[in-house]
Nucleic acid binder design. Structure first.
Lengths: 230, 230
DNA sequence: GCTTGCTGTCATACGTATGTAATATTCCTT
DNA sequence: AAGGAATATTACATACGTATGACAGCAAGC
């Protein structure tokens, strides 16, 4: 559980440093940012396991930033905890609406904060970042967020990308539609199981011009499987 | 997946009965309770596979009850889904904190509720990991959902796959048609015993090109047996 | 504003698996 | 060897699961 990377976005230096210290003592690696710009720059160095976001920020507000992170396919899966002052407590609904996983009111005890962080990380338990996945010429780069077949770039939507990423990280194994919804669609949203069929179709379509669509295999009555075998 | 037992704790009779009906039609066995006391009494008759808990209950609240279940070593492992009204949505965090595995806001569609129930149950009770069954070159992989004979992939239907899986997990033992129907077919489906013969035939056909059909042996007057011996 | 791309759902088409009945074969008993 | 019972095999209608294309709602960018 330790060694997790946390991005802390907080403009007040006193609070930021105190918080960072508490987190580091608890075994987390903390990246500090004062505002939205610094935060986004920090993100380009690799995704953290969790983002701690102050509600009130100069410039782009915390809530706006949270929304942006949730929409961005790159940061989509990273859990977010909002830091709010007690007087802002009424707004916590909007905070949750914006996609935050939890909120903590200031002033908070380090113990409480760490407990919540651990809970959220455990719940989210993000996939280990594999970097580049290469299976028989089909290459998926999680960093550049690109897929290529024998060097030729393939176009596909964000959902198809995540689907393919999951499949390539877990090949030779059947997943039911329900499992795929859990793993690829992750949080909150309720979608029909049949929707998986449609995205499978779209993924196959994106792969078929290079003959890789055969890797996505239907297992009748069970689900789908990614396999480089015939 | 069906036949799972669900404890439904909800004080409003209308909602409770409607929910119970929807769940029963989906194949769940529902135990109804109006309040905390009834719920605890119901639990003493045996643990359910999941607890559906209304947020607002007369007397002991749903959240308090959830906390209690989580602390009690007897009920500790039973997954909980909270039912909350939309206006209570901001309390969702506390709901998760209290140990709930998911929450559903009222009004909910039966389909969504059932989907979430299935997801939570599946996560809570992962399939026993059988892994790979290998008997003299006949290999059945439950993960990839594949059967191969000395490396060559064999094609067969879902029922034949389940049948073979059962046989390979219980070799050297005779099973009557009636027993096989119990173990391999989903409960509650009324199928002729003679149908087993047909699927045995199909399984043998799938195996015969590689000489493995001899493993499926007829025991006249008793049933069938899987045996790697002559 | 408008356009574009993505998502989720639906209706429909399609193929295959399934259960049963009919017929053939094998095995055991007498 | 014959008769009867159990099993094997084939054929077939139907049900079921999957594939596919079209569509409407959104959000993002122009």
């Amino acid at each position: 559980m330790t060694g997790k990377k946390i991005l802390l976005v907080e403009d007040e230096a006193a609070i930021r440093e105190m918080t960072a210290m508490a987190l580091e003592r608890a075994g987390f690696a903390v990246i500090e940012a004062e505002d939205a710009q610094q935060a986004e720059r920090a993100l380009s160095d690799g995704l953290p396991d969790l983002i701690l976001l102050d509600w009130m920020l100069p410039g782009t507000s915390g809530i706006e930033l949270a929304r942006r992170f949730r929409r961005d396919e790159y940061t989509y899966g990273v859990p977010i905890i909002m830091l709010t002052a007690r007087s802002e407590e009424d707004d916590r609904i909007r905070g949750l609406d914006s996609g935050a996983d939890d909120y903590v009111t200031k002033p908070f005890s380090p113990r409480e904060l760490i407990a919540r962080i651990k809970a959220v990380i455990r719940r989210a338990s993000p996939e280990p970042d594999k970097g580049v996945l290469d299976i028989k010429g089909l290459v998926l780069d999680t960093h550049s967020h690109r897929v290529s077949a024998n060097g030729k770039v393939l176009e596909m939507g964000p959902t198809e990308f995540r689907l393919l990423q999951f499949f390539m990280a877990h090949p030779e194994r059947v997943y039911s539609r329900s499992q795929l919804l859990d793993m690829v669609w992750s949080r909150g949203s309720f979608v029909e199981e049949r929707t998986v069929d449609v995205h499978i179709r779209r993924l196959r379509k994106a792969l078929e011009s290079d003959g890789f669509d055969g890797f996505i295999q239907t297992v009748r009555g069970a689900g789908y499987r990614f396999s480089a075998q015939v």
